[in-house]
Simulated assay, not measured.
Amino acid sequence: MINPQDLFAISSQKQFEKIALKVFRFQYENNIVYQEFCNFLNTDVTKVKSLQQIPFLPIQFFKSHHVVSTTHPIQETFTSSGTTSPITSSGGIKDDSVITSKHLVADISLYEQSYRTAFSQFYGNIEDYVVLALLPSYLERSGSSLIYMVKDLVELSKNEHSGFYLHNYDELILKLIELDNSGENVLLIGVTYALLDLIEKQNFQLKNTIIMETGGMKGKRKEIIREELHEVLCKGFGVSSIHSEYGMTELLSQAYSLGNGIFECPAWMQVLIRDTEDALTYVDNGKTGGVNVIDLANINSCSFIATQDLGKKQPNQRAGRQAGSFEIVGRFDNSDIRGCNLMVM
């Protein structure tokens, strides 16, 4: 039996690999969908001794199957937006499917512990911030894991000024300027298109505010590459860097970028980069490939997910990190997934 608390106490690469292999065996035994996928690949579980030998479940399975590794009741169901756009912010071509992913969460406390602990590791005490959220496209639907997380962070900040904004941009502009001028530490979390809308209404010169974009134009604007986007946002908000959050419906953990689009994972999450021509092999640091995510917080669903993102591993950005950093450079075209589609039909 795996103690979930062991996941958040990982402090070395050796420990991560040991627990990841234990989680792999647990999910093979208890997750019928994942077991069938592994069997389809003729995986000999007894011979899986490294992270690279673990099969990664294509993320599309969360659209077509119930991916669960437990018989416990489902406490929360997170769903993807189902919005479509032909091009991503990194220049790749998006999946044009409108079928939404469903992440069945049996223990919501694991999600809460994951994002609370990760936020603390990257940003410190949440009570040191005023948290402002500009996430209109997420607020306007139900089942968003991002809204669940940000709502909790707003409450945990215990600050009367923290809160959500929908389309009331003028009110947000006044609040942002007032708080920044007063010396408050402000964290503005926003969906990309809404942040661009905001700086078209007001040119800021912020000194005490972190701007964190969560990605996505949601069909509201033409997609642009990250470098151009961050340049525009930096100029519009008057800041030197733009922070980013890398998360998705199918994960219970997030990676964060403190600038330049380079992401780092919390200790219980890692990224591997698979070969675009052969989904079962991996490429070296600095080379582009498909992003495979290990999220050990997904103990009750699947911790090994082959995403449709394209990325590169990078050397560690900060001392003490056992796994390399990464960047997202685009998305796979549906016709270009090569070996990641197995059994999705």
Results as ranks from 00 to 15, higher is better:
Thr249Ile: 14
Gln254Asn: 10
Ala255Pro: 05
Gly238Met: 02
Met248Val: 02
Ile273Asp: 11
Gln254Pro: 00
Ala255Cys: 06
Trp268Ile: 06
Leu258Asn: 07
Lys235Val: 13
Ser241Arg: 14
Glu277Asn: 06
His243Leu: 06
Gln254Tyr: 11
Ser240Met: 03
Met248Thr: 02
Gln270Asp: 08
Gly247Ser: 12
Cys265Ala: 14
Gly261Phe: 14
Arg274Ile: 01
Phe263Arg: 15
Glu250Asn: 05
Ser241Phe: 09
Phe237Cys: 08
Ile273Arg: 05
Trp268Glu: 00
Gln254Glu: 11
Gly259Ala: 10
Arg274Met: 11
Ser244Ala: 15
Gly259Asn: 10
Tyr246Gln: 06
His243Ser: 14
Ser240Gly: 15
Phe263Cys: 06
Ser257Ile: 09
Glu264Val: 04
Leu258His: 10
Val271Gly: 07
Leu251Gly: 10
Gly236Lys: 00
Tyr246Lys: 02
Lys235Met: 13
Glu264Ser: 11
Glu277Arg: 00
Gly259Met: 09
Leu258Trp: 03
Leu272Glu: 03
His243Tyr: 14
Ser244Gln: 11
Asn260Pro: 00
Val271Ala: 11
Ser253Cys: 05
Leu272Thr: 00
Leu258Asp: 08
Val271His: 01
Ile273Gly: 05
Ser257Val: 09
Ala267Leu: 09
Ser244Lys: 03
Glu264Asp: 12
Glu264Thr: 07
Gly247Glu: 01
Glu277Asp: 14
Glu250Asp: 12
Ile273His: 07
His243Asn: 15
Leu252Asp: 08
His243Gln: 06
Ile262His: 15
Asp275Ala: 06
Val239His: 14
Leu251Arg: 02
Ala267Cys: 10
Gly261Lys: 13
Ile262Val: 12
Ser244Gly: 08
Tyr246Cys: 05
Leu272Gly: 02
Cys265Ile: 12
Gly259Trp: 05
Ser257Gly: 05
Trp268Val: 07
Gly247Thr: 01
Gly238Gln: 03
Glu277Thr: 04
Cys234Pro: 04
Glu245Phe: 10
Gly247Trp: 02
His243Trp: 09
Phe237Trp: 04
Ser241Leu: 14
Asn260Val: 00
Ala255Phe: 01
Gly259Arg: 11
Thr249Ala: 12
Lys235Leu: 13
Gly247Asn: 04
Ile273Leu: 05
Asn260Leu: 08
Leu252Arg: 03
Met269Glu: 12
Ala255Leu: 01
Tyr246Met: 07
Ile273Thr: 07
Ile273Phe: 01
Asp275Trp: 04
Cys265Val: 11
Leu258Gln: 14
Asn260Ile: 00
Thr249Gly: 02
Ser241Tyr: 09
Val271Leu: 03
Phe263Ala: 12
Leu258Phe: 05
Ser253Ala: 09
Ser241Ile: 08
Asp275His: 13
Leu251Cys: 06
Gln270Ser: 14
Ser240Lys: 15
Cys265Gln: 10
Ala267Glu: 14
Phe237Pro: 00
Val271Lys: 06
Asn260Phe: 07
Ile262Gln: 15
Ser257Asn: 03
Lys235Gly: 08
Leu251Ala: 02
Gln254Ser: 13
Phe263Met: 09
Cys234Gly: 08
Met248Gln: 07
Thr276Met: 13
Leu251Asn: 13
Gly238Trp: 02
Ser241Val: 11
Leu251Lys: 03
Leu252Glu: 11
Pro266Asn: 00
Leu252Lys: 03
Glu277Ser: 12
Asn260Met: 07
Tyr256Pro: 15
Asp275Met: 04
Val239Asn: 11
Ser253Ile: 04
Glu277Trp: 02
Ser244Leu: 12
Gly247Asp: 00
Ala255Gly: 12
Glu245Val: 09
Ala267Met: 08
Met248Gly: 15
Gly236Tyr: 00
